[in-house]
Design a protein around this nucleic acid. Structure first.
Lengths: 197, 197
DNA sequence: GTCTATACTTTGATAGAC
DNA sequence: GTCTATCAAAGTATAGAC
């Protein structure tokens, strides 16, 4: 649809994603969104008839997909899986420092906010995490880890980076993410070694 | 101070903590708080002259301390460290299921919301996490893990449970927390074994 | 069909009645 | 010193001018 490719619509989506990362879902107002996107207020309801919830859902799914692509690109650029995992955690820490501890996971803040308050948005965050788990599971399986172990391990890797983001944003240090990266490499290495037996 | 022991004040603190877990900081209104606490609106500003920020800060620190005590009680009740860690993760999963996926970490949602928007509250969450890291580090050290390893490991354990809470609340399943618990036991066991050498 | 103006609700906060 | 009434601002949403 031509509507979906509207430049205004894209600007609203990008601006909303950026504001969600800083202020979360409840903390971001529609007025703030249109002001930052240089769009008239009515354009929100023109492009998103479902209002804030529809806009929020699209931003969650879109941000989740974009972030996954970035992480997978880092993994693919590395010579091997363990190096790729280490690079992903180090890269996340660098971005965090470079953006004054703003750009972490684009979904986590909203996910916790809506988990017990809006089921449509909760489901969107659940779908995003599920996509991530599937993608990481596939990479682990391809490296030779048994598929049921791989899925549990994929969840652990995502938990480590999300927990790392949380502690690092609060403390404004990247130590926790470095610890998470080391642990991530260690658990995957252990799984690779046990799969050889 | 007699004011600090006021029953109304306590009710406001408890109610706010509960609402923060469900709706986060921005999503919880002062009017909603006084309504749930059966308190007149003015009592908020009587007991908390600094308004919502002062109330929020007290709730963050108080919730952080209470939650730490609960977790330490679980660890102390177990015959050994590894069992205690497994119990803590299992217990967290049980509480999550029993409370319809509401009662997870009382600090994480607020921490992500305020990390880039209110430095007073961000600092409060940072202090809470630091207290947690110190307490867990002490338990790991007491079990024979070298102190610098122990601190990194403590961060990893907290990251695993926080990441587990995030994925579980979104998916409304406790699989991710079970995976986190297994990984937590595995990394601590590995640290204990290497400390024997 | 793009955008402005406005409706209506709720927000955090304050003043003052009693 | 407990509580009510009200404030200005910001929240989402809608109606209608052009």
């Amino acid at each position: 649809m031509a509507q979906d490719r509207s430049a205004t619509r894209e600007r609203i989506l990008d601006t909303t994603a950026e504001l969600f990362r800083r202020y979360g879902y409840t903390g971001t107002g529609l007025k703030q969104i249109v002001a930052n996107a240089n769009a008239p207020f009515g354009s929100v309801y023109h492009h998103f008839p479902g209002g804030k919830v529809q806009l929020g859902e699209e931003v969650i799914r879109r941000s989740g997909q974009m972030y996954l692509e970035i992480v997978l690109a880092v993994l693919d650029a590395a010579p091997d899986l363990l190096t790729g995992i280490a690079d992903a955690f180090m890269g996340a820490a660098e971005v965090l420092r470079a953006t004054d501890y703003i750009d972490a996971c684009p979904v986590a803040t909203v996910a916790l906010e809506v988990a017990s308050s809006n089921d449509t948005l909760r489901q969107a965050t659940a779908d995003v995490f599920d996509t991530w788990i599937d993608a990481v599971t596939a990479r682990l399986s391809a490296a030779g880890i048994a598929s049921d172990d791989a899925r549990r391990l994929a969840m652990v890797l995502i938990e480590l980076i999300e927990g790392g983001f949380l502690l690092c944003r609060a403390a404004r240090t990247t130590q926790a993410l470095e610890a998470a990266g080391s642990a991530a490499v260690a658990v995957v290495r252990a799984a690779l070694e046990s799969s050889i037996d």
